[in-house]
Design a protein around this nucleic acid. Structure first.
Lengths: 371, 371
DNA sequence: TCGATGGATGAATGCGATTTCAGCACGGCC
DNA sequence: GGCCGTGCTGAAATCGCATTCATCCATCGA
């Protein structure tokens, strides 16, 4: 029923060894014979058995992506980029949703890591110690692990320039006259949140008489913005920077519900620039992150860092790769050591503030500014 | 370095055969010895080699999901449901993004189908003929193919009750006094669009003096709604039903930009109930589709229809399955033949209209209603 | 007490591809 | 002319596991 390499060999009148070589190491076989075998293979509709190949070569041709929540537009966008690049390079992609659960993350990496050539772990919620363990014990040594949106000593990673993002946002608000600026943070323990807080502090130090009000930690979801919105109203800030867009949208919604006008009374800035940011009114001023590029860069770096041989066995895959590379040339990214003692190569993805309608000049006099 | 079954066998003082049985056919080996082998395997950190197992059993433990666009919240939600159920049943999930390209769809199913135990094809854009070919030529006979959101003779499928959805929507609008109702359709050739048109026609026949105005076909994206919005304004309808929420949101946005008030001047109804539907103002009245359930049902039916033995080899997977089943009991769905000559089992997922702020009573007198 | 029965075990085989290793033919070089 | 390298090819081993088949031993029934 199913045609195997032996069948091809027999039909072509050569040994299985030669047939194998003709297909996967063409220069080892005489041109005429090679062509013939390839033709026969095509005619017979031969499809190499991946399991058999994997058994002996040890490579699966699969990559794996673990995200906290597939439905979150941030991760969906990253996943799309990762998937596209993986396919272009001849890899299939296993996708797993960790449901925001640190333990499930480890478990998934452990399970899936055993059957792939590389793992991309996006925005891991797990603690540093768990991350250490992953690299050391859980994964085979020849399965590279790459982090997205998190920096960890000893692991290659692709991160966005959080500090610069908040700097741009705060500078923008400062220029609009805001002096008391709230920060609605992400979950406790979130690495990117810590990054942004640090960037925020640093940026505000550079600006005269700017006060940053920490509104606390919130789930980075629309629902989290409701609680945050009330705190915004109560805190007397004239502007708020949210950990991400979903949170910002929730704040927007809550403020409107309470009769607080945006941007007349309060300005709101998000982070990520998810599609929904432009769907609301007022459209959200936010820090745009090239998420698809992030995903593509992750795959590229994973392949490179892990020196995973691309499974570009088929001419198709090769062609796709070329096309993909052309359409998406190497992004303008910084490569190198970006702190935290990261020895393996890391890529820093630049971000950009997009000003929309949710930010405006600060109200004339903030009552909370003190008499 | 890596511990194999032989190692376990040697360490436990049994033959590889017994070790194999102790782990994957426990009742064939004496209790004491079984326990011992299992303990040794645990101690040694034995992880069965999937490739070897696959090579001999022919099963991969992987399923595959192909969607037109991972970033589309509709498909993201389905993917999440599929992934969750697949994992609960012990399967890993390969996800592929077909980029709305019918040819790429076929290609992906062909490529990935060779390395999975079953394929779920969601909202295929390809023609019926291509779908036929998939089932016949492209896939191995033992790799079941299941459709989501599309019905096709000879293939099992999970579909949503499109006709009932539009019926509910139209009835709602009728009750609000609307008589001229526009329909902003999905892409040409979209199966679900055809379904909804049919349901629309049928529903409107049952309502006195209702006129349905076909506004044409649009890309089911926010951008498509801009063009559609202008047509809504020009057509003199007092209400519009959009093919999906993204389109509806685009219409909403365009109408606002043109100074048309929603719902005072025009009512808008979406379809799918994506998260963004509640983020906008006015919040979108829409037909809510239980997308995660849709995904779970797809996996269940695929396993069942293809009689794919669940890879619930580990106790963990089994436990997860039980837990998952408990948390998500069998949905209230209709199983059976639902037309189009579908012989394999198909599941029909019920939908429900959720009324929010984008629909209201029809304006007193529509000028387009004629003298 | 002996043969039949059946449960538990081990040796051997095969899944389908890759990859040594050895062999063969040919050509160049001394 | 003989020797050696070079270029191709085929036989066979291998990857790790499941499974068939044969064996063995204990137990039961007569």
């Amino acid at each position: 029923m199913v045609v195997t390499l032996r069948d091809v060999a027999r039909a072509a009148g050569v040994s299985p060894a030669t047939a194998s070589r003709a297909l996967s190491a063409p220069d080892l076989v005489a041109p005429a014979r090679r062509e013939h075998v390839q033709q026969v293979a095509r005619d017979l509709g031969y499809r190499p058995n991946r399991a058999a190949r994997e058994l002996i070569t040890g490579r699966t041709g699969n990559l794996c992506l673990v995200v906290p929540d597939l439905e979150n537009p941030f991760f969906a966008a990253v996943a799309k980029g990762v998937q596209a690049r993986a396919r272009a390079l001849g890899f299939a992609l296993l996708v797993a949703d960790a449901e925001e659960d640190p333990r499930l993350e480890s478990e998934l990496v452990g399970h899936l890591g055993a059957q792939v050539d590389g793992v991309i772990l996006c925005s891991p919620r797990m603690a540093d110690a768990a991350l250490d363990r992953l690299g050391r014990d859980v994964l085979d040594d020849d399965v590279p692990l790459l982090l997205v949106n998190r920096l960890h000593s000893g692991l290659p990673s692709v991160v966005i320039d959080n500090a610069d993002g908040v700097r741009q946002a705060v500078t923008h608000l400062y220029a609009l006259g805001h002096r008391r600026i709230g920060y609605a943070g992400g979950p406790v323990g979130s690495w990117s949140d810590a990054q942004r807080r640090r960037g925020l502090e640093h940026a505000s130090h550079g600006l005269r008489s700017v006060e940053v009000v920490d509104l606390g930690h919130f789930p980075p979801l629309f629902g989290g913005g409701v609680a945050a919105g009330d705190l915004v109203a109560a805190s007397g800030v004239t502007a708020v920077l949210a950990h991400n867009d979903l949170l910002a949208l929730g704040i927007l919604s809550r403020l409107r519900a309470r009769g607080v006008r945006v941007p007349e009374d309060v300005s709101v800035v998000g982070y990520d620039d998810i599609p929904a940011a432009t769907l609301v009114s007022p459209a959200l001023t936010t820090v745009t992150v090239p998420l698809a590029r992030l995903g593509r860069a992750a795959v590229d770096l994973l392949i490179e860092a892990g020196s995973v041989p691309t499974a570009a066995e088929s001419a198709l895959a090769a062609a796709l790769t070329a096309a993909e590379r052309t359409r998406h040339p190497a992004p303008a990214i910084t490569i190198g050591d970006i702190g935290a003692g990261a020895v393996p190569p890391s890529v820093l993805i630049g971000v950009e503030l997009v000003v929309r309608a949710s930010t405006g000049v600060a109200p004339a006099q903030s009552s909370a500014a003190g008499g």
